[in-house]
Write a protein that binds this DNA or RNA. Structure first.
Lengths: 242, 242
DNA sequence: CATTTTTCATTTGTCAGACATTTAAACGTC
DNA sequence: GACGTTTAAATGTCTGACAAATGAAAAATG
């Protein structure tokens, strides 16, 4: 029933467990590849494949030279963002998550941040949001650039909550949806509408008005879903548009 | 300035980009290791290390035999859960995220699910929650088992929202916090309190009362934070309690 | 003695070649 | 046609070798 996993996978799991359980501390050096070969009684290639697996998950980093080796990596939030976003984006595309579902998740999560952000946002966060709003209002901006600015705006909102765990979790939801958002053709009118809502959201955050922020986010969520539905209707016509 | 990354990392990136961009479709077979060696002009070992990196991210799966090879894996939500939880747990422990911050994030996200769950939860979700409540009320339950059941209860609540994207994002927040929760010693009184709140949450969901669900979650969040603070106070006494 | 240079041992990165194992397809045999 | 056998192709593993990086010890130098 159970296909025996590769040796390299087993060894990777063994070391990973040691890291997760805390048997191996951050910064600690693993035995050299030769020593690991002896310990696990496998060849060096197999050990190396195991180590590469761990490196791909940012669990270890390797260094060459006399005092080199593999070290338990301190996983930083910034490092995890990238993987989180890649994974989320693939999940959305490979599982054919429809725009409505992705949008719902994104705004539900963002809504959760809004009260905290209203309470704690710094002047810096507010400045970032205002700057992105200005960019979004520029005529001649490509749809891609508009979307990227939209992401930056919402990232600032989320970061304003001052909770790195929330920021991390939301990075996936907010950024992974960008490819889906990029399918929307933003007319001048819809951009005006969005920029207007963004401005009012920034105003509400500046006034530290949590209720108003949430209400505006709900409005924006509804409007975004509406825009998305027109895209969904279009995609019906060209099902395999590659 | 920039350390040239390993060949295997470069090759992994090259293939990963092809997958993310859609150049390689789900289920498609990659060239054999020998062919990849030729294409990238490296040895087979290097190609293998690159493939192991991708396998560690669940981007490909390999199969032995005549028609075997490496295939672009369909990334399923269930596959991503595990990685998400491992990463989140490591982020919390390695960055010394305090209980309050983690707890805040968890309940903020869960709160976002509550209205949707009140609207859409199935009888099945409700039954799971009731079953976990029953388990939690049993005397003699270990703290670990109590926590595990707590996680299962909240997972059911989140799944009730019927949005796989939300469930995925929340898996990390809810499950990664379990190790921190496990540090709490649940007295008979605190268990009673929690079980009581869980029961009222289940009741509210059964009645599809979103407002009440959110209010009860807020109460539970406050109480959990309170319990966590007593743990934090204790940990001050034994800073390196290993 | 202090400083600079050289040597050197250690460790990871890469390569080449071999054999084992698995798997499905091709081939014979009945 | 059904059933066993062979075979080819692919991954999994092992061995041994060399290249490259790197810090530390040793040696040379002033």
């Amino acid at each position: 029933m159970k296909n025996a996993p590769d040796l390299s996978a087993q060894i990777a799991k063994s070391i990973r467990d040691a890291i997760v359980s805390g048997d191996l501390d951050v910064g600690e050096r693993l035995p050299s590849e030769a020593e690991l070969s002896d310990q696990f009684d496998v060849s060096r290639s197999t050990v190396r494949e195991a180590l590469k697996r761990l490196a791909a998950q940012s669990l270890i980093r390797t260094q060459r030279g006399a005092t080199g080796g593999a070290f338990v990596n301190k996983l930083r939030f910034e490092d995890a963002y990238g993987q989180q976003i890649t994974t989320s984006a693939l999940l959305l595309s490979m599982n054919a998550v429809d725009f409505t579902t992705a949008c719902e998740a994104r705004f539900a999560l963002e809504r959760a941040c809004a009260p905290l952000s209203a309470q704690r946002r710094s002047a810096d966060h507010l400045a970032t949001m205002r700057a992105e709003i200005t960019r979004q209002a520029q005529p001649g901006l490509s749809d891609e650039s508009f979307c990227a600015s939209d992401v930056a705006f919402h990232r600032a909102l989320v970061d304003g909550a001052g909770n790195p765990v929330l920021s991390y979790q939301l990075a996936g939801a907010v950024e992974a949806i960008e490819p889906l958002m990029n399918m929307i053709t933003f007319t001048a009118r819809s951009r005006d509408r969005i920029v207007g809502l963004h401005t009012r959201i920034a105003d509400a955050l500046e006034a530290r008005d949590a209720d108003q922020t949430v209400a505006l986010l709900d409005t924006l969520a509804d409007y975004t879903a509406e825009l998305g539905q027109s895209v969904a209707a279009k995609r019906k016509d060209t099902p395999k548009g590659n």
